[in-house]
Amino acid sequence: MMPFTYGFVGWFTNVVALKMTFYPLEFVGIPPYLGWQGIVPKKAQKLALKSVNIMTERLIKVEDFFSKVDPDQLETEFQPILNDLIPSATHEIVHHINPILRKHLENGHGEEIVRAVQEKCAHTVKNIMVQVKENVSSVFNFRSLVLRKLTGPNVERIVNIFEEVGSKEFKFIEHCGWALGGALGIAQAVLWNYLPIWWTLPIQGVIVGYITNWVALTMIFRPLYEKRVGPIKYRGLFIARQEEVSKKYSNVFATQVLTARNVLEEILYKRAARTLVETIQAETESAATRLNLAGQLDAENNGEDSDFENTKKEVIRKVSDSLAGSSTKLETYMGRAMSIENNMFKRMKDLPPEEFEPILRSAFQEDEYVLILIGSVLGAIVGLVQGIYMIAV
């Protein structure tokens, strides 16, 4: 039974180690130390930053995102949608200004404000994209976008990325546990014939749990370069799959993080909505000045918590959501123009092994020793149960 028992131990300790790498997403237990949170969700901020650094240094030139995007094409597709939103957005904001001013401005002057806003915002979309192409870093915060999409309430996304990219390696870890644990179990059975002392079994359990976890993790990433022993050639499993992993990693990032919608939300939807609201406010103030009306638009003077400010925020949200909901065709165009997946894949598959390895290993590296120790502890527990059983029989 020893080979079967330790085959199970090797498999079980490796499975537990993997699960504890990714789950639970939130800390379970009594904080700060009595409990557990998956290594990846716990280190999500740091891992996301590593992903950003790898991408910006080796895989992506942010300027390439927009080099093929035509501002005139965007204006043709998008500006009519924005124009249709101007009347309702203007009336919404004017309706929530100082009641004394509102009474005069709504009495025949509301349409003047709408026309002025439409004139001033006639090329908002084109102007924003021209600014983006001229100076990407001042408009598009790539780092901030990736961090928001992979951390906080979106932490499950970074877990999914690592699980998808390393799915074959994780299966190997499980199978390696069975095979190596079984082989060590045979050695244990032989040793038991010569040294049938029950307390040696927990010690052997520690060794088996440690070795199976350590060997499995090592074989995934080492050696970086192909080695040969006689006719046998071998290399780290993850490194050997570089092209396949690159394709999957690029696809996951392009479809879950750096989507055309996410990029447009960052550079266009909210920016266009804010520009619109700021223009409405400016034109409303200009109309009040022309009519010699005294007083501020915001009657409450409560800063960020006033009804007027809350209305502006709500209008920005509505306009942004309306733009996002009406731009499927535009997002398809942007996705093709940016070619994120294709560009990432081409560069990633050609990375040297030293730079490719951290893409998956960063999920384990800082706490690798914890995963190996978990295997040792679980192996010791099983060995102790074995020892008790041997005494009983």
Rank of each mutant, 00 (worst) to 15 (best):
G152S: 08
N98V: 09
V139L: 09
M55E: 05
L150F: 00
T21I: 09
G185V: 06
E134N: 14
A392M: 15
Q281D: 15
L180K: 03
T275Q: 15
S306H: 04
P24G: 07
G110V: 03
N213L: 00
V16T: 13
R58F: 15
Y333S: 06
S326N: 14
K171W: 12
E283D: 01
K43F: 06
L49G: 12
L191K: 04
P196M: 03
K349W: 08
E75Q: 14
T311K: 07
Q296G: 00
N193W: 10
E366T: 10
I388F: 12
F253A: 04
I391D: 03
D307H: 10
V69T: 07
K61V: 11
I267M: 07
Y234E: 06
D307I: 13
M1G: 14
N262R: 10
S250W: 09
V146Q: 01
R347L: 13
H91I: 15
G29F: 01
V315K: 08
N14H: 14
A240M: 08
N154K: 10
K42N: 13
T21E: 11
V62L: 00
L74I: 15
A216P: 03
R157I: 10
Y269V: 05
A363P: 08
Q131C: 07
I93P: 02
A240H: 14
F170G: 03
L378I: 15
E156F: 13
P352K: 12
A254W: 07
I211H: 04
L264I: 10
G7I: 04
A240S: 12
E368W: 02
A44T: 02
P80K: 08
I161T: 05
I267E: 02
A240C: 03
F4E: 05
G387R: 09
N213R: 05
V208N: 05
Q256L: 04
L201C: 08
I54N: 10
Q386P: 02
K349S: 09
E75M: 03
W11K: 01
F27P: 03
S51Q: 09
P153A: 03
G10H: 04
E300T: 06
E355Y: 12
V94P: 00
L85C: 06
V315I: 12
W11D: 00
A122W: 11
H123D: 10
S306Y: 07
T151V: 04
T76E: 12
L82F: 04
I113Y: 01
I161E: 09
V155S: 00
T275R: 14
M129W: 12
H96F: 11
G152M: 00
